[in-house]
Design a protein around this nucleic acid. Structure first.
Lengths: 355, 355
DNA sequence: TTGTAGGCGTTATCAG
DNA sequence: CTGATAACGCCTACAA
């Protein structure tokens, strides 16, 4: 590891000059061409500042802590972590990861992060609900991901569930569907009521009636399958908006039992896509992708902009992000999701069907 | 943050004495009771060493780097990360996480980890294959996870695929199955041939013939379903060992089409368990859990033992681990997996069926 | 415009 | 046994 001192010696300048030049603080301190010269020799020597030494001095580490409850309980955690890591990497930050197991190790993990001097915290939940960051974080730079903060000081970032429901439903309407069913979830999740709200709004905006009989909340396994089956018999829907992939499965299953073909007789839009669905269903359901990657990505960027006290350049993220959330501090960020077409929507000669 | 200097002042000892006492290096340097006294006041002041300062001096950081290719491409990554993080946390280490995207950012991410001074590297792949760590890591403390190293200097840790196939098949044999089919994967994965080997060995050990017609390698979607369907017609197997959850789905689907009931007419043992399967199948397939958590956990422990140059106490891991791998440096570690019964095995009045 | 010196919190060396 | 003191690499007053 080459040090600042060695650069100084080689470039014939003082340590101060080198430090100044390397941090682009030449202002009225170091002559322009000397600064250039220093930077060039530094580069040629492959000089990289030692983050430890720098941090010890500045008490800033250019690291952020990612705190996740039960990282592995959902398959989405990986996406979120990846997004956050991508943003951190783009901005020259490192990410420290800790897991909390719900058994009270949270405090000690956070304490560990504090000791290592992270500049800020990403506090990640695994599905949107009203939540609070622990008091030990409330005065630190913190962003809450995938949960709604009740503490208005803490920015949070959640999927735009209403838009999901709206987009899915509007898409089905556009494609010419007549009786659009909503297969919801009986667990009382926040996402459930919000997606339903979007569904209803889309119908209303299209001057369609809302038929409560087309809306079913189902649980799991046999019971759920039966409930969906009953719906098929009762209302013969020609389109389905499904709360999640398990619900999509029930619909496909019921359709198969009746000899109905997805993409011809019925249309299906689902949320997210399990690997099983990818490897077993034909045609693939049209899907709204859950924005876990984006939540991680924008959460980390937001956090770092707070840390650095200024807005960041717009991200050059390699994944397509439907909408760049504003970075003004107060408001929550709602991420709009992307619709992925997969040919499971019947072409009824209309706009969406024709695409 | 209280510093060593403050502790020195309060306890009336010198900084040196405090440092010695706190690191339990009193040996012949600090009187036993003074050391005790120092430790007590340090504790009462809530003193915690500043890792940055310590690292600057010792050039050891008590951090490890977790390098993962495309963290989010499989749902298992979360498990692996979690396992590694748990082990690190237990042993007082922090984990820095970086992602490599296969587009050549690997070198720069590793360089970043190096600059931050991590003590060792976990190089994680997402399924077992023959692989090498990049040259930049070959002289560092490195453990390869979920891949077989061709460089014999690098320890690696992989699932015991043969044991998986053996256990699953032996279990089906014990439960009284007659015609045990193997539904494999046509992608040519290492896991595929190893699990098949286990399947064959179990049959051989039980003096059962190996019927090639009971062994099918299938791809995905419709083609796979048809192949499994043909197998049902051709051989009427009464038990199935499935390479993964998608294969399990094909079997359930074919059974349903024929009015066969899993757990009564046929027995199924699968690998791993997708959420869709959990929420839709009844009864649940008997499953062999993939050991991603364990690979992460034991990988990190192995790494840290290398870093510290000595074996570690046996882990008090909160998850049950089938077998504690030996920590002798040279050999690869193969993790034996856990069989999880879920009532999908027909009770034919035999040992396994009765459990 | 440049260079010197002090300090961030630790650990390690080396006289007392 | 004990306690100054010098590093570790970097930043930044402040003096030249």
């Amino acid at each position: 590891m080459t040090t600042i001192k060695e650069v100084a010696k080689k470039s014939g300048a003082s340590v101060t000059a080198v430090s100044m030049a390397l941090n682009h603080r030449e202002d009225g301190h170091v002559k322009k061409d000397l600064a250039e010269h220093i930077r060039k020799t530094a580069k040629s020597m492959g000089y990289r500042p030692n983050p430890l030494a720098r941090s010890l001095r500045t008490s800033r580490t250019r690291t952020i802590g990612f705190i996740s409850e039960e990282i592995a309980t959902t398959p989405y955690a990986g996406e979120m972590i990846l997004g956050a890591q991508d943003a951190a990497s783009e901005l020259g930050y490192m990410m420290l990861l800790v897991n909390t197991d719900g058994n009270g190790n949270e405090a000690s993990e956070i304490a560990a992060l504090k000791r290592y001097g992270v500049d800020g915290y990403l506090y990640a939940k695994m599905y949107d609900r009203v939540s609070n960051v622990p008091k030990s974080l409330s005065h630190e730079h913190t962003v809450l991901i995938d949960a709604t903060s009740s503490d208005k000081k803490i920015p949070y970032i959640v999927p735009d569930e209403v838009a999901m429901g709206y987009d899915a439903t509007a898409y089905l309407i556009q494609s010419g569907a007549e009786r659009i069913a909503y297969i919801g979830c009986s667990e009382g999740l926040l996402a459930e009521s919000l997606r339903l709200k979007g569904y209803e709004k889309a119908l209303k905006d299209a001057d369609r009636p809302i038929d409560p009989e087309l809306i079913v909340d189902v649980d799991k396994n046999g019971g759920a399958l039966k409930a969906v089956s009953d719906l098929f018999e009762r209302k013969r829907p020609d389109a389905f908006f499904c709360f999640n992939d398990a619900r999509t499965w029930y619909v496909y299953q019921c359709a198969a039992q009746r000899g109905l073909e997805v993409g011809r007789d019925i249309s299906v839009v689902g949320i997210d896509n399990n690997r099983i669905i990818k490897e077993t269903f034909e045609p693939q359901p049209t899907t709204i992708a859950l924005p876990h990657y984006e939540m991680g990505y924008w959460g980390a960027r937001r956090l770092i902009s707070m840390i650095e006290g200024h807005d960041l350049d717009s991200g050059r993220n390699r994944k397509t992000v439907a909408q760049i959330p504003p970075l003004d501090a107060a408001s929550p960020v709602r991420i709009r999701c992307t619709l992925i077409e997969r040919g499971s929507v019947a072409n009824r000669g209309t706009a969406a069907g024709k695409r």
